[in-house]
Amino acid sequence: MMRAWIQLVIAIGVEIVGTSLLKLSAGFKHPLVGILGMLLYGLAIFSFSLALRKIPLSIGYAIWAGVGTAVTGLIGIWAFGEVLTGLKTLGFMAIIMGVVLLNKPLKAPQTAPTTSRTARWRTRYNR
């Protein structure tokens, strides 16, 4: 299970670097930088798919999207001179709260009834 979380961290980090490179490509005026950014997106998705073998989709995606969005926003402020407004600060706080809430179940998780097709799918793809 720890390996899945490491894969998720790698996916987030690689996506953040890829996004920053796409910004630096200036709309592909610097095509090699843009291509490298796109390749990193592919690597991020691959790493994310490995993480999803063990991490539930709703939790994994919430963390990936939330942390990626927040860190990318902070990079925009720090590296690209974007302005941190009160509304952006509220948005960052909402992202963090959303990720926290999705990771805290209110009651015990319920398992869906297993049909033969569902069982085959789980056996095939959740190794």
Rank of each mutant, 00 (worst) to 15 (best):
V17T: 11
V17A: 04
G18A: 09
G18T: 05
T19G: 12
S20K: 12
S20M: 04
L21K: 05
L22S: 08
L22P: 13
K23F: 09
K23S: 09
L24N: 10
L24C: 04
S25C: 08
G27Y: 12
F28V: 09
F28H: 13
F28I: 05
K29D: 13
K29V: 01
K29Y: 09
H30V: 02
H30T: 07
P31E: 03
P31D: 03
P31I: 03
L32H: 12
L32W: 14
V33A: 09
V33Q: 05
G34D: 01
I35C: 04
L36E: 00
L36N: 02
G37R: 01
G37N: 03
M38Q: 13
M38I: 12
L39G: 13
Y41S: 04
G42T: 07
G42W: 03
L43H: 04
L43S: 07
L43Y: 09
A44E: 02
A44K: 10
I45F: 11
F46T: 03
S47I: 00
S47M: 14
F48H: 00
F48L: 10
S49C: 07
A51N: 06
A51V: 02
L52K: 01
L52M: 11
R53D: 00
R53Q: 04
R53A: 00
R53G: 00
I55T: 05
I55R: 03
I55N: 01
I55V: 06
P56C: 00
P56H: 01
L57E: 00
S58T: 02
S58E: 05
I59T: 01
G60E: 01
A62W: 00
A62I: 02
A65E: 12
A65P: 11
A65M: 08
V67S: 03
V67D: 00
V67M: 05
G68A: 08
G68T: 05
T69K: 08
T69E: 07
T69R: 09
V71L: 15
V71A: 10
V71S: 04
G73M: 12
G73P: 08
L74K: 11
I75Y: 08
G76V: 11
I77K: 09
I77C: 10
W78A: 10
A79L: 13
F80S: 11
F80D: 11
G81C: 05
G81Q: 01
E82M: 10
L84T: 04
L84Q: 06
L84K: 11
T85A: 15
T85Q: 11
L87D: 12
K88Y: 10
K88E: 06
T89Q: 10
L90K: 13
L90H: 09
G91W: 05
G91M: 04
G91Y: 09
F92T: 00
F92H: 03
M93T: 12
A94W: 10
A94C: 14
I95A: 10
I95F: 06
I96G: 09
M97E: 03
G98F: 02
V100G: 03
L101F: 10
L102K: 07
L102D: 00
N103C: 12
N103T: 08
K104V: 01
K104N: 02
P105I: 06
L106A: 11
L106N: 09
L106R: 14
L106Y: 13
K107D: 10
K107N: 15
A108F: 06
P109A: 02
Q110S: 11
T111S: 15
A112Q: 06
A112F: 01
P113Q: 04
T114W: 04
